[in-house]
Design a protein around this nucleic acid. Sequence first.
RNA 1: UGGGGUGUGGCCAAGCGGUAAGGCAACGGGCUUUGAACCCGUCAUUCGCAGGUUCGAAUCCUGCCACCCCAGCCA
Length: 552
Amino acid sequence: MNNENIRDFIRERVSRDIREERISGGVVTRFPPEPNGYLHIGHAKSICLNFGIAEEFGGITYLRFDDTNPLSESASFVEAIQTDVKWLGFDWESRLTFASDYFPQLYEFAEELIKRDGAFVCDLSFEELQQSRGTLVKPGIDSPYRNRSIEENLDLFRRMRAGEFITGSKTLRAKIDMRAPNINMRDPVLYRIIHAPHHRTESNWCIYPMYDFTHCICDALEGITHSLCTLEFADHRPLYDWVLENININFHPPQIEFSRLGLEYNVMSKRVLSQLVESRYVTGWDDPRMPTLSGLRKRGVPPAAIRDFCNRIGITKQNNYIETELLDFCVRNTLENTTRRAMAVKRPLEVEITNFEGDDVGLPAPWHPKNLELGERTLTFGRTIYIDRDDFALDPPPKFKRLVQGGIVRLRYAFIIECLDVEKDEQGTVSKVFAKYYPTSRSGADTSGLKPKGVIQFVASNNAHSVEMHDYDRLFSVPTPHRERFDEELNPLSHVVHHGFVEKAVIAVSDSHSFQFERVGFYYRDLHKSSDEGQVVFHRTVPLNQGWKPKV
RNA sequence: UGGGGUGUGGCCAAGCGGUAAGGCAACGGGCUUUGAACCCGUCAUUCGCAGGUUCGAAUCCUGCCACCCCAGCCA
Protein backbone atom coordinates (compact mmCIF):
# COMPACT_ATOMS: atom_id res chain seq x y z
CA MET A 1 0.00 0.00 0.00
CA ASN A 2 1.25 3.43 -0.86
CA ASN A 3 0.01 6.78 -1.97
CA GLU A 4 -0.47 5.54 -5.49
CA ASN A 5 -3.49 3.74 -4.17
CA ILE A 6 -5.15 6.95 -3.13
CA ARG A 7 -6.50 8.19 -6.39
CA ASP A 8 -10.04 9.11 -5.48
CA PHE A 9 -12.27 9.82 -2.52
CA ILE A 10 -13.28 6.18 -2.10
CA ARG A 11 -9.73 4.86 -1.95
CA GLU A 12 -8.99 7.72 0.39
CA ARG A 13 -11.79 6.49 2.63
CA VAL A 14 -10.68 2.86 2.45
CA SER A 15 -7.15 3.85 3.23
CA ARG A 16 -8.27 5.86 6.23
CA ASP A 17 -10.50 3.04 7.50
CA ILE A 18 -7.53 0.70 7.41
CA ARG A 19 -5.18 3.17 9.03
CA GLU A 20 -7.61 3.93 11.82
CA GLU A 21 -8.35 0.24 12.26
CA ARG A 22 -11.99 0.78 11.61
CA ILE A 23 -12.19 -2.55 9.81
CA SER A 24 -10.93 -5.72 11.39
CA GLY A 25 -10.16 -8.25 8.65
CA GLY A 26 -9.16 -7.05 5.23
CA VAL A 27 -11.08 -4.98 2.75
CA VAL A 28 -14.12 -6.76 1.34
CA THR A 29 -15.98 -5.44 -1.70
CA ARG A 30 -18.53 -6.82 -4.06
CA PHE A 31 -19.80 -6.38 -7.58
CA PRO A 32 -23.57 -6.97 -7.49
CA PRO A 33 -25.08 -7.18 -11.00
CA GLU A 34 -28.68 -8.07 -11.62
CA PRO A 35 -28.78 -10.91 -14.16
CA ASN A 36 -31.27 -9.19 -16.43
CA GLY A 37 -28.99 -7.93 -19.15
CA TYR A 38 -25.44 -7.82 -20.39
CA LEU A 39 -22.62 -5.92 -18.77
CA HIS A 40 -21.55 -2.67 -20.41
CA ILE A 41 -18.61 -0.36 -20.02
CA GLY A 42 -20.39 1.46 -17.21
CA HIS A 43 -20.36 -1.78 -15.27
CA ALA A 44 -16.68 -2.09 -16.08
CA LYS A 45 -16.13 1.11 -14.13
CA SER A 46 -17.72 -0.49 -11.09
CA ILE A 47 -15.96 -3.82 -11.59
CA CYS A 48 -12.57 -2.13 -11.86
CA LEU A 49 -13.35 -0.08 -8.77
CA ASN A 50 -14.46 -2.96 -6.58
CA PHE A 51 -11.94 -5.55 -7.70
CA GLY A 52 -9.27 -2.89 -8.03
CA ILE A 53 -9.64 -1.68 -4.47
CA ALA A 54 -9.57 -5.22 -3.10
CA GLU A 55 -6.42 -5.93 -5.12
CA GLU A 56 -4.69 -2.74 -4.08
CA PHE A 57 -5.47 -3.07 -0.40
CA GLY A 58 -5.04 -6.81 -0.10
CA GLY A 59 -8.72 -7.62 0.19
CA ILE A 60 -11.28 -9.79 -1.49
CA THR A 61 -14.25 -9.23 -3.79
CA TYR A 62 -17.49 -11.13 -4.19
CA LEU A 63 -19.34 -11.49 -7.43
CA ARG A 64 -22.86 -11.44 -6.11
CA PHE A 65 -25.87 -11.72 -8.37
CA ASP A 66 -28.70 -9.56 -7.19
CA ASP A 67 -31.43 -11.90 -8.31
CA THR A 68 -34.52 -10.95 -6.37
CA ASN A 69 -36.83 -10.40 -9.31
CA PRO A 70 -37.61 -13.66 -11.13
CA LEU A 71 -39.67 -11.84 -13.74
CA SER A 72 -36.70 -10.25 -15.47
CA GLU A 73 -33.76 -12.46 -14.63
CA SER A 74 -32.37 -15.58 -16.20
CA ALA A 75 -29.55 -18.06 -16.02
CA SER A 76 -28.26 -17.08 -19.44
CA PHE A 77 -27.48 -13.60 -18.16
CA VAL A 78 -25.73 -15.13 -15.18
CA GLU A 79 -23.50 -17.02 -17.58
CA ALA A 80 -22.80 -14.06 -19.81
CA ILE A 81 -21.96 -11.81 -16.89
CA GLN A 82 -19.44 -14.27 -15.51
CA THR A 83 -17.83 -14.56 -18.92
CA ASP A 84 -17.51 -10.80 -19.15
CA VAL A 85 -16.07 -10.27 -15.68
CA LYS A 86 -13.49 -12.98 -16.30
CA TRP A 87 -12.66 -11.56 -19.68
CA LEU A 88 -12.17 -8.12 -18.16
CA GLY A 89 -9.46 -9.74 -16.08
CA PHE A 90 -10.93 -10.25 -12.64
CA ASP A 91 -11.25 -13.35 -10.51
CA TRP A 92 -13.75 -13.82 -7.73
CA GLU A 93 -12.25 -17.22 -6.98
CA SER A 94 -14.67 -19.04 -4.68
CA ARG A 95 -16.70 -15.95 -3.92
CA LEU A 96 -19.59 -16.38 -6.30
CA THR A 97 -22.85 -15.73 -4.48
CA PHE A 98 -26.47 -15.02 -5.22
CA ALA A 99 -28.91 -12.92 -3.26
CA SER A 100 -31.22 -15.88 -3.70
CA ASP A 101 -28.78 -17.96 -1.64
CA TYR A 102 -29.87 -15.81 1.28
CA PHE A 103 -33.63 -16.10 0.80
CA PRO A 104 -34.07 -18.26 3.94
CA GLN A 105 -32.08 -15.85 6.10
CA LEU A 106 -33.76 -12.86 4.54
CA TYR A 107 -37.08 -14.41 5.43
CA GLU A 108 -36.02 -14.89 9.04
CA PHE A 109 -34.92 -11.27 9.27
CA ALA A 110 -38.28 -10.22 7.90
CA GLU A 111 -40.08 -12.17 10.61
CA GLU A 112 -37.78 -10.63 13.17
CA LEU A 113 -38.60 -7.18 11.89
CA ILE A 114 -42.31 -7.94 12.18
CA LYS A 115 -41.84 -9.16 15.74
CA ARG A 116 -40.11 -5.91 16.57
CA ASP A 117 -43.08 -4.05 15.15
CA GLY A 118 -40.89 -2.73 12.33
CA ALA A 119 -42.96 -4.07 9.46
CA PHE A 120 -46.54 -4.86 8.59
CA VAL A 121 -48.49 -6.71 5.95
CA CYS A 122 -50.35 -4.30 3.71
CA ASP A 123 -53.35 -5.14 1.54
CA LEU A 124 -53.31 -1.96 -0.49
CA SER A 125 -53.42 -2.47 -4.24
CA PHE A 126 -50.66 -1.14 -6.45
CA GLU A 127 -52.77 1.90 -7.32
CA GLU A 128 -53.81 2.55 -3.74
CA LEU A 129 -50.25 2.36 -2.57
CA GLN A 130 -49.24 4.78 -5.27
CA GLN A 131 -51.98 7.19 -4.21
CA SER A 132 -51.13 7.04 -0.52
CA ARG A 133 -47.43 7.55 -1.05
CA GLY A 134 -47.95 11.28 -1.63
CA THR A 135 -45.74 13.25 -3.98
CA LEU A 136 -42.37 14.89 -3.87
CA VAL A 137 -43.86 17.86 -2.07
CA LYS A 138 -46.84 16.23 -0.39
CA PRO A 139 -46.50 13.77 2.49
CA GLY A 140 -48.03 10.33 2.19
CA ILE A 141 -50.74 8.91 4.37
CA ASP A 142 -50.65 5.85 6.58
CA SER A 143 -51.91 2.58 5.23
CA PRO A 144 -55.15 1.48 6.89
CA TYR A 145 -53.39 -1.82 7.58
CA ARG A 146 -50.52 -0.19 9.38
CA ASN A 147 -51.80 -0.99 12.84
CA ARG A 148 -52.34 -4.69 12.52
CA SER A 149 -51.09 -6.61 15.52
CA ILE A 150 -47.74 -8.28 15.43
CA GLU A 151 -49.47 -11.65 15.63
CA GLU A 152 -51.72 -10.88 12.69
CA ASN A 153 -48.77 -9.59 10.63
CA LEU A 154 -46.78 -12.69 11.40
CA ASP A 155 -49.66 -14.94 10.50
CA LEU A 156 -50.36 -13.07 7.27
CA PHE A 157 -46.69 -12.99 6.27
CA ARG A 158 -46.38 -16.74 6.84
CA ARG A 159 -49.44 -17.30 4.74
CA MET A 160 -48.00 -15.06 2.05
CA ARG A 161 -45.00 -17.32 1.98
CA ALA A 162 -47.23 -20.40 2.01
CA GLY A 163 -48.81 -19.25 -1.20
CA GLU A 164 -52.28 -18.45 0.08
CA PHE A 165 -52.50 -15.13 -1.73
CA ILE A 166 -52.32 -14.21 -5.35
CA THR A 167 -49.54 -12.23 -6.98
CA GLY A 168 -49.57 -8.59 -6.00
CA SER A 169 -52.36 -8.86 -3.46
CA LYS A 170 -50.28 -8.15 -0.38
CA THR A 171 -46.91 -6.71 0.53
CA LEU A 172 -44.74 -6.56 3.57
CA ARG A 173 -43.89 -2.96 4.30
CA ALA A 174 -41.44 -1.31 6.65
CA LYS A 175 -43.04 0.80 9.33
CA ILE A 176 -41.08 4.01 9.09
CA ASP A 177 -42.73 7.34 8.31
CA MET A 178 -45.22 8.23 5.59
CA ARG A 179 -44.40 11.90 6.08
CA ALA A 180 -40.66 11.47 5.52
CA PRO A 181 -39.32 13.98 3.00
CA ASN A 182 -37.32 11.12 1.49
CA ILE A 183 -39.87 9.09 -0.41
CA ASN A 184 -37.87 5.91 0.06
CA MET A 185 -38.63 6.11 3.77
CA ARG A 186 -42.40 6.24 3.34
CA ASP A 187 -43.12 2.70 4.56
CA PRO A 188 -41.32 1.06 1.62
CA VAL A 189 -42.28 -2.37 0.36
CA LEU A 190 -39.91 -5.06 1.62
CA TYR A 191 -41.50 -8.18 0.16
CA ARG A 192 -43.96 -8.78 -2.63
CA ILE A 193 -45.86 -11.80 -3.83
CA ILE A 194 -44.79 -13.14 -7.22
CA HIS A 195 -45.99 -16.56 -8.25
CA ALA A 196 -43.26 -17.18 -10.75
CA PRO A 197 -40.37 -19.60 -10.89
CA HIS A 198 -36.93 -18.27 -10.10
CA HIS A 199 -33.91 -19.29 -12.16
CA ARG A 200 -32.22 -20.73 -9.09
CA THR A 201 -34.78 -21.35 -6.36
CA GLU A 202 -37.36 -22.52 -8.87
CA SER A 203 -40.72 -22.69 -7.15
CA ASN A 204 -39.57 -22.71 -3.57
CA TRP A 205 -40.66 -19.15 -3.04
CA CYS A 206 -43.61 -17.08 -4.08
CA ILE A 207 -42.57 -14.03 -2.09
CA TYR A 208 -39.47 -12.13 -3.10
CA PRO A 209 -37.55 -9.52 -1.12
CA MET A 210 -37.02 -6.06 -2.58
CA TYR A 211 -33.63 -4.60 -3.35
CA ASP A 212 -33.62 -2.31 -0.34
CA PHE A 213 -34.23 -5.15 2.08
CA THR A 214 -31.92 -7.57 0.33
CA HIS A 215 -28.86 -5.61 -0.57
CA CYS A 216 -27.92 -4.26 2.83
CA ILE A 217 -28.43 -7.62 4.54
CA CYS A 218 -26.39 -9.50 1.94
CA ASP A 219 -23.66 -6.90 2.29
CA ALA A 220 -23.69 -7.38 6.05
CA LEU A 221 -23.71 -11.17 5.86
CA GLU A 222 -20.74 -11.14 3.52
CA GLY A 223 -18.90 -8.65 5.68
CA ILE A 224 -18.61 -6.09 2.94
CA THR A 225 -16.45 -3.31 4.36
CA HIS A 226 -17.28 -0.81 1.64
CA SER A 227 -20.52 -1.08 -0.26
CA LEU A 228 -19.95 0.95 -3.40
CA CYS A 229 -22.80 1.94 -5.64
CA THR A 230 -23.86 4.65 -8.02
CA LEU A 231 -25.31 8.00 -7.09
CA GLU A 232 -28.96 7.23 -7.72
CA PHE A 233 -28.86 4.99 -4.66
CA ALA A 234 -27.82 7.78 -2.34
CA ASP A 235 -31.47 8.39 -1.51
CA HIS A 236 -31.71 4.77 -0.46
CA ARG A 237 -28.89 4.96 2.04
CA PRO A 238 -31.13 5.96 4.97
CA LEU A 239 -33.20 2.86 4.26
CA TYR A 240 -30.10 0.70 3.90
CA ASP A 241 -29.06 1.90 7.34
CA TRP A 242 -32.56 1.64 8.80
CA VAL A 243 -32.92 -2.04 7.90
CA LEU A 244 -29.59 -2.96 9.44
CA GLU A 245 -30.34 -0.97 12.55
CA ASN A 246 -33.70 -2.61 13.06
CA ILE A 247 -32.70 -6.25 12.89
CA ASN A 248 -30.25 -8.22 14.94
CA ILE A 249 -27.21 -8.32 12.71
CA ASN A 250 -23.69 -7.69 13.82
CA PHE A 251 -22.24 -5.93 10.83
CA HIS A 252 -23.15 -2.66 9.15
CA PRO A 253 -21.32 -1.81 5.95
CA PRO A 254 -21.14 1.82 4.87
CA GLN A 255 -22.72 2.59 1.52
CA ILE A 256 -20.61 4.94 -0.55
CA GLU A 257 -21.87 6.39 -3.81
CA PHE A 258 -20.03 7.50 -6.93
CA SER A 259 -21.28 8.77 -10.27
CA ARG A 260 -22.00 6.42 -13.11
CA LEU A 261 -20.17 6.57 -16.40
CA GLY A 262 -21.52 8.58 -19.28
CA LEU A 263 -19.91 7.94 -22.67
CA GLU A 264 -20.61 10.33 -25.49
CA TYR A 265 -22.56 8.99 -28.50
CA ASN A 266 -23.63 6.03 -26.38
CA VAL A 267 -26.32 5.07 -24.00
CA MET A 268 -25.90 2.86 -20.93
CA SER A 269 -29.54 2.29 -20.21
CA LYS A 270 -30.23 -1.43 -20.15
CA ARG A 271 -33.72 -0.69 -21.38
CA VAL A 272 -32.50 1.10 -24.49
CA LEU A 273 -29.77 -1.42 -25.16
CA SER A 274 -32.16 -4.34 -24.99
CA GLN A 275 -34.57 -2.47 -27.21
CA LEU A 276 -31.85 -2.09 -29.83
CA VAL A 277 -31.30 -5.81 -29.62
CA GLU A 278 -34.96 -6.74 -29.77
CA SER A 279 -35.69 -4.40 -32.65
CA ARG A 280 -32.81 -6.03 -34.50
CA TYR A 281 -31.26 -2.67 -35.12
CA VAL A 282 -28.08 -4.30 -33.91
CA THR A 283 -27.17 -7.93 -34.40
CA GLY A 284 -27.24 -8.69 -30.69
CA TRP A 285 -25.88 -7.70 -27.30
CA ASP A 286 -22.45 -8.34 -28.76
CA ASP A 287 -22.86 -6.17 -31.81
CA PRO A 288 -19.52 -4.37 -32.20
CA ARG A 289 -21.28 -1.02 -31.97
CA MET A 290 -22.72 -1.76 -28.56
CA PRO A 291 -21.05 -0.38 -25.43
CA THR A 292 -21.42 -3.82 -23.90
CA LEU A 293 -18.33 -5.73 -22.87
CA SER A 294 -19.27 -8.47 -25.31
CA GLY A 295 -19.64 -5.89 -28.07
CA LEU A 296 -16.30 -4.31 -27.29
CA ARG A 297 -14.73 -7.75 -27.18
CA LYS A 298 -16.12 -8.64 -30.58
CA ARG A 299 -14.77 -5.39 -31.95
CA GLY A 300 -11.34 -6.38 -30.77
CA VAL A 301 -10.99 -4.01 -27.83
CA PRO A 302 -8.55 -5.65 -25.43
CA PRO A 303 -9.64 -5.88 -21.79
CA ALA A 304 -6.48 -4.06 -20.75
CA ALA A 305 -7.67 -1.05 -22.71
CA ILE A 306 -10.93 -0.98 -20.80
CA ARG A 307 -9.11 -1.27 -17.49
CA ASP A 308 -6.82 1.55 -18.51
CA PHE A 309 -9.82 3.62 -19.50
CA CYS A 310 -11.48 3.03 -16.16
CA ASN A 311 -8.33 4.07 -14.37
CA ARG A 312 -8.10 7.27 -16.35
CA ILE A 313 -11.66 8.51 -15.96
CA GLY A 314 -11.46 8.69 -12.20
CA ILE A 315 -14.08 8.21 -9.52
CA THR A 316 -16.06 11.20 -8.32
CA LYS A 317 -19.62 12.24 -7.66
CA GLN A 318 -19.80 14.55 -10.63
CA ASN A 319 -22.05 13.82 -13.57
CA ASN A 320 -19.79 13.08 -16.47
CA TYR A 321 -19.85 12.37 -20.16
CA ILE A 322 -16.52 11.03 -21.30
CA GLU A 323 -15.51 11.74 -24.89
CA THR A 324 -15.09 8.65 -27.04
CA GLU A 325 -11.63 9.90 -27.96
CA LEU A 326 -10.36 8.81 -24.57
CA LEU A 327 -11.56 5.24 -25.03
CA ASP A 328 -10.13 5.21 -28.55
CA PHE A 329 -6.85 6.47 -27.20
CA CYS A 330 -6.73 3.68 -24.61
CA VAL A 331 -7.46 1.09 -27.26
CA ARG A 332 -4.78 2.30 -29.68
CA ASN A 333 -2.36 2.73 -26.84
CA THR A 334 -2.64 -0.85 -25.66
CA LEU A 335 -2.60 -2.25 -29.17
CA GLU A 336 0.24 -0.07 -30.44
CA ASN A 337 3.30 -2.05 -29.45
CA THR A 338 1.98 -5.58 -29.62
CA THR A 339 -0.12 -5.71 -32.72
CA ARG A 340 1.14 -6.88 -36.08
CA ARG A 341 1.12 -4.43 -38.95
CA ALA A 342 -0.14 -5.56 -42.32
CA MET A 343 -1.36 -4.10 -45.56
CA ALA A 344 -4.94 -3.97 -46.63
CA VAL A 345 -6.87 -2.02 -49.21
CA LYS A 346 -10.40 -1.16 -48.29
CA ARG A 347 -11.54 0.17 -51.65
CA PRO A 348 -9.30 -1.50 -54.21
CA LEU A 349 -8.10 0.30 -57.29
CA GLU A 350 -6.24 -1.85 -59.80
CA VAL A 351 -2.81 -0.71 -60.86
CA GLU A 352 -0.98 -2.32 -63.75
CA ILE A 353 2.77 -2.05 -63.61
CA THR A 354 3.46 -1.85 -67.29
CA ASN A 355 7.19 -2.38 -67.14
CA PHE A 356 7.04 -5.39 -64.85
CA GLU A 357 7.71 -8.74 -66.46
CA GLY A 358 7.91 -12.25 -65.10
CA ASP A 359 7.05 -13.77 -61.76
CA ASP A 360 6.15 -11.75 -58.67
CA VAL A 361 9.07 -10.82 -56.47
CA GLY A 362 9.06 -11.54 -52.75
CA LEU A 363 9.74 -8.71 -50.36
CA PRO A 364 10.43 -9.26 -46.66
CA ALA A 365 8.65 -6.94 -44.28
CA PRO A 366 8.62 -6.92 -40.47
CA TRP A 367 5.33 -7.61 -38.76
CA HIS A 368 6.01 -4.57 -36.64
CA PRO A 369 8.41 -1.72 -37.45
CA LYS A 370 9.70 -1.47 -33.87
CA ASN A 371 8.81 -4.73 -32.17
CA LEU A 372 11.04 -7.02 -34.20
CA GLU A 373 10.25 -9.97 -31.96
CA LEU A 374 7.08 -10.32 -33.94
CA GLY A 375 9.16 -11.48 -36.88
CA GLU A 376 8.46 -10.84 -40.52
CA ARG A 377 6.41 -12.03 -43.43
CA THR A 378 6.99 -11.89 -47.15
CA LEU A 379 5.14 -9.50 -49.37
CA THR A 380 4.75 -9.90 -53.05
CA PHE A 381 5.04 -7.40 -55.90
CA GLY A 382 4.02 -8.08 -59.47
CA ARG A 383 2.39 -6.77 -62.59
CA THR A 384 -1.04 -6.28 -61.06
CA ILE A 385 -1.47 -4.72 -57.66
CA TYR A 386 -4.20 -2.93 -55.75
CA ILE A 387 -4.01 0.35 -53.95
CA ASP A 388 -6.74 2.18 -52.09
CA ARG A 389 -8.92 4.54 -54.11
CA ASP A 390 -8.29 7.21 -51.49
CA ASP A 391 -4.59 7.05 -52.32
CA PHE A 392 -5.06 8.19 -55.87
CA ALA A 393 -6.45 11.49 -57.07
CA LEU A 394 -6.96 12.95 -60.49
CA ASP A 395 -7.59 16.31 -58.96
CA PRO A 396 -5.53 16.24 -55.77
CA PRO A 397 -6.32 18.60 -52.91
CA PRO A 398 -3.47 20.77 -51.60
CA LYS A 399 -0.72 18.92 -49.73
CA PHE A 400 -1.80 15.59 -51.17
CA LYS A 401 1.13 13.20 -50.73
CA ARG A 402 -0.23 10.18 -52.49
CA LEU A 403 -0.39 9.09 -56.12
CA VAL A 404 -1.38 11.56 -58.82
CA GLN A 405 -1.12 11.48 -62.56
CA GLY A 406 2.48 11.84 -63.58
CA GLY A 407 3.57 11.68 -59.95
CA ILE A 408 5.49 9.16 -57.93
CA VAL A 409 4.78 7.46 -54.66
CA ARG A 410 6.49 4.78 -52.63
CA LEU A 411 4.72 1.47 -52.14
CA ARG A 412 5.50 0.51 -48.58
CA TYR A 413 8.28 -2.08 -48.30
CA ALA A 414 8.39 -2.29 -52.09
CA PHE A 415 9.10 0.04 -54.99
CA ILE A 416 8.47 3.54 -56.12
CA ILE A 417 5.91 3.75 -58.88
CA GLU A 418 4.96 6.52 -61.25
CA CYS A 419 1.50 6.95 -62.63
CA LEU A 420 1.50 7.05 -66.42
CA ASP A 421 -2.14 6.93 -67.35
CA VAL A 422 -5.62 6.04 -66.14
CA GLU A 423 -8.62 4.27 -67.49
CA LYS A 424 -12.12 5.53 -66.68
CA ASP A 425 -15.49 3.86 -66.72
CA GLU A 426 -18.69 5.26 -68.21
CA GLN A 427 -19.29 7.40 -65.14
CA GLY A 428 -15.88 8.95 -65.55
CA THR A 429 -14.43 7.47 -62.39
CA VAL A 430 -10.99 5.99 -62.55
CA SER A 431 -11.22 2.23 -62.92
CA LYS A 432 -7.61 1.38 -63.48
CA VAL A 433 -4.22 3.00 -63.22
CA PHE A 434 -1.21 2.34 -65.41
CA ALA A 435 2.12 2.88 -63.80
CA LYS A 436 5.74 2.01 -64.15
CA TYR A 437 7.99 0.99 -61.32
CA TYR A 438 11.59 1.87 -60.68
CA PRO A 439 13.50 -1.41 -60.24
CA THR A 440 16.33 0.36 -58.42
CA SER A 441 14.01 1.75 -55.79
CA ARG A 442 13.51 -1.47 -53.91
CA SER A 443 12.98 -0.93 -50.21
CA GLY A 444 16.21 -1.22 -48.26
CA ALA A 445 18.28 -1.12 -51.45
CA ASP A 446 17.15 2.07 -53.06
CA THR A 447 19.67 3.58 -55.42
CA SER A 448 17.17 5.44 -57.57
CA GLY A 449 17.74 8.78 -55.88
CA LEU A 450 14.02 9.42 -56.10
CA LYS A 451 12.34 11.16 -53.17
CA PRO A 452 8.62 10.56 -53.24
CA LYS A 453 6.54 12.66 -50.89
CA GLY A 454 4.37 9.83 -49.73
CA VAL A 455 4.17 6.17 -48.90
CA ILE A 456 1.06 4.10 -49.47
CA GLN A 457 0.10 0.53 -48.84
CA PHE A 458 -0.75 -1.97 -51.56
CA VAL A 459 -1.55 -5.60 -52.05
CA ALA A 460 -0.31 -7.52 -55.09
CA SER A 461 -3.16 -9.32 -56.80
CA ASN A 462 -1.37 -12.64 -56.47
CA ASN A 463 -0.99 -12.02 -52.76
CA ALA A 464 -4.49 -10.71 -52.17
CA HIS A 465 -7.03 -12.45 -50.04
CA SER A 466 -10.44 -10.92 -50.35
CA VAL A 467 -12.10 -9.98 -47.09
CA GLU A 468 -14.97 -8.05 -45.67
CA MET A 469 -13.94 -5.10 -43.58
CA HIS A 470 -16.67 -3.99 -41.23
CA ASP A 471 -16.18 -0.40 -40.19
CA TYR A 472 -18.02 0.86 -37.14
CA ASP A 473 -18.72 4.37 -36.08
CA ARG A 474 -20.59 5.91 -33.17
CA LEU A 475 -23.93 4.24 -32.50
CA PHE A 476 -25.68 7.58 -32.09
CA SER A 477 -25.29 10.76 -34.03
CA VAL A 478 -25.62 13.04 -31.03
CA PRO A 479 -23.24 13.14 -28.06
CA THR A 480 -25.90 12.74 -25.40
CA PRO A 481 -28.77 10.71 -26.87
CA HIS A 482 -32.12 11.23 -25.30
CA ARG A 483 -33.54 8.09 -23.75
CA GLU A 484 -37.00 8.76 -25.11
CA ARG A 485 -36.25 9.53 -28.72
CA PHE A 486 -33.11 7.49 -29.02
CA ASP A 487 -34.34 5.84 -32.21
CA GLU A 488 -34.31 9.17 -34.04
CA GLU A 489 -30.79 9.79 -32.93
CA LEU A 490 -29.20 6.59 -34.14
CA ASN A 491 -26.31 7.03 -36.54
CA PRO A 492 -27.31 5.48 -39.88
CA LEU A 493 -23.67 5.09 -40.83
CA SER A 494 -22.63 3.25 -37.70
CA HIS A 495 -21.85 0.15 -39.73
CA VAL A 496 -20.32 0.17 -43.19
CA VAL A 497 -18.98 -2.89 -44.99
CA HIS A 498 -16.08 -2.73 -47.44
CA HIS A 499 -15.01 -5.53 -49.74
CA GLY A 500 -11.28 -5.32 -49.81
CA PHE A 501 -8.06 -7.26 -49.86
CA VAL A 502 -5.49 -8.14 -47.28
CA GLU A 503 -2.16 -9.82 -47.84
CA LYS A 504 -2.40 -13.58 -47.59
CA ALA A 505 0.03 -13.81 -44.71
CA VAL A 506 -2.57 -12.21 -42.47
CA ILE A 507 -4.94 -15.10 -42.98
CA ALA A 508 -2.27 -17.57 -41.89
CA VAL A 509 -1.61 -15.90 -38.55
CA SER A 510 -3.21 -17.93 -35.81
CA ASP A 511 -1.85 -16.60 -32.54
CA SER A 512 -3.52 -13.23 -32.69
CA HIS A 513 -6.65 -11.80 -34.18
CA SER A 514 -5.66 -8.16 -33.96
CA PHE A 515 -3.91 -6.36 -36.77
CA GLN A 516 -3.13 -2.85 -37.63
CA PHE A 517 -3.74 -2.36 -41.30
CA GLU A 518 -1.25 0.35 -41.96
CA ARG A 519 -2.68 3.79 -42.55
CA VAL A 520 -6.19 2.38 -42.11
CA GLY A 521 -6.86 1.22 -38.61
CA PHE A 522 -6.82 -1.58 -36.09
CA TYR A 523 -8.92 -4.54 -37.12
CA TYR A 524 -9.94 -7.75 -35.43
CA ARG A 525 -10.56 -10.95 -37.26
CA ASP A 526 -13.85 -12.64 -36.47
CA LEU A 527 -13.07 -16.32 -36.26
CA HIS A 528 -16.60 -17.31 -35.37
CA LYS A 529 -18.31 -15.83 -38.32
CA SER A 530 -17.56 -15.34 -41.95
CA SER A 531 -19.72 -13.39 -44.31
CA ASP A 532 -22.56 -14.86 -46.29
CA GLU A 533 -20.19 -15.42 -49.19
CA GLY A 534 -17.90 -17.30 -46.87
CA GLN A 535 -15.38 -14.51 -46.78
CA VAL A 536 -13.13 -13.69 -43.90
CA VAL A 537 -14.56 -10.92 -41.75
CA PHE A 538 -12.59 -8.19 -40.02
CA HIS A 539 -14.13 -5.77 -37.56
CA ARG A 540 -12.60 -2.36 -37.22
CA THR A 541 -11.56 -1.98 -33.61
CA VAL A 542 -10.63 1.66 -33.94
CA PRO A 543 -9.43 3.86 -36.79
CA LEU A 544 -5.98 5.42 -36.78
CA ASN A 545 -5.56 9.06 -35.87
CA GLN A 546 -5.86 11.25 -38.92
CA GLY A 547 -2.92 13.59 -39.09
CA TRP A 548 -4.18 15.19 -42.25
CA LYS A 549 -7.73 15.89 -43.22
CA PRO A 550 -8.58 16.55 -46.84
CA LYS A 551 -11.10 19.32 -47.18
CA VAL A 552 -14.49 17.88 -48.01
C1' U B 1 -43.34 24.74 -2.50
C1' G B 2 -39.93 18.36 -0.53
C1' G B 3 -35.43 15.36 -0.15
C1' G B 4 -30.58 13.92 -2.01
C1' G B 5 -26.20 14.98 -5.11
C1' U B 6 -22.90 18.14 -8.04
C1' G B 7 -20.61 22.76 -9.91
C1' U B 8 -12.11 23.72 -11.45
C1' G B 9 -9.94 24.89 -19.24
C1' G B 10 -13.50 21.49 -25.07
C1' C B 11 -13.98 16.37 -22.03
C1' C B 12 -12.33 14.00 -17.53
C1' A B 13 -9.74 15.27 -13.01
C1' A B 14 -5.98 16.71 -8.88
C1' G B 15 -6.43 20.35 -5.20
C1' C B 16 -8.23 19.43 1.85
C1' G B 17 -6.16 28.23 3.72
C1' G B 18 -0.22 29.67 1.10
C1' U B 19 -0.81 31.68 -4.28
C1' A B 20 -4.35 26.24 -10.30
C1' A B 21 -1.11 18.63 -10.95
C1' G B 22 -2.06 15.16 -14.71
C1' G B 23 -4.64 12.68 -18.87
C1' C B 24 -7.61 13.05 -23.43
C1' A B 25 -8.67 16.58 -27.25
C1' A B 26 -6.81 20.87 -29.84
C1' C B 27 -2.87 23.77 -31.90
C1' G B 28 2.39 24.67 -33.39
C1' G B 29 7.26 22.22 -34.39
C1' G B 30 10.69 17.82 -34.87
C1' C B 31 11.26 12.82 -36.62
C1' U B 32 9.29 9.37 -40.04
C1' U B 33 9.32 4.08 -46.16
C1' U B 34 2.25 3.99 -41.60
C1' G B 35 -0.14 11.92 -43.08
C1' A B 36 0.22 6.39 -37.47
C1' A B 37 3.42 5.86 -33.42
C1' C B 38 7.25 8.68 -31.04
C1' C B 39 9.58 13.49 -29.30
C1' C B 40 9.35 18.76 -28.04
C1' G B 41 6.35 23.09 -27.15
C1' U B 42 1.53 26.02 -26.50
C1' C B 43 -3.20 25.72 -24.10
C1' A B 44 -7.34 28.43 -16.66
C1' U B 45 -4.05 35.63 -13.67
C1' U B 46 -8.46 31.78 -12.55
C1' C B 47 -11.86 27.71 -9.91
C1' G B 48 -20.96 28.56 -11.15
C1' C B 49 -22.18 33.86 -9.38
C1' A B 50 -22.21 37.71 -5.48
C1' G B 51 -20.72 39.18 -0.88
C1' G B 52 -17.87 38.23 3.74
C1' U B 53 -13.64 36.26 7.03
C1' U B 54 -8.18 36.31 6.43
C1' C B 55 -1.68 39.03 5.52
C1' G B 56 -3.42 35.31 2.01
C1' A B 57 -9.47 31.64 -0.32
C1' A B 58 -10.75 26.97 -5.64
C1' U B 59 -10.20 25.67 -0.55
C1' C B 60 -13.73 28.76 5.51
C1' C B 61 -18.75 31.54 6.13
C1' U B 62 -23.43 33.69 3.97
C1' G B 63 -26.75 34.33 0.01
C1' C B 64 -28.01 33.28 -4.88
C1' C B 65 -27.89 30.57 -9.65
C1' A B 66 -27.46 26.13 -12.73
C1' C B 67 -27.51 20.97 -13.60
C1' C B 68 -28.51 15.65 -12.15
C1' C B 69 -31.41 11.93 -9.21
C1' C B 70 -35.99 10.38 -6.30
C1' A B 71 -43.14 9.63 -6.30
C1' G B 72 -41.69 0.52 -9.34
C1' C B 73 -45.12 -4.49 -5.45
C1' C B 74 -37.32 -2.67 -10.77
C1' A B 75 -32.31 -2.80 -9.37
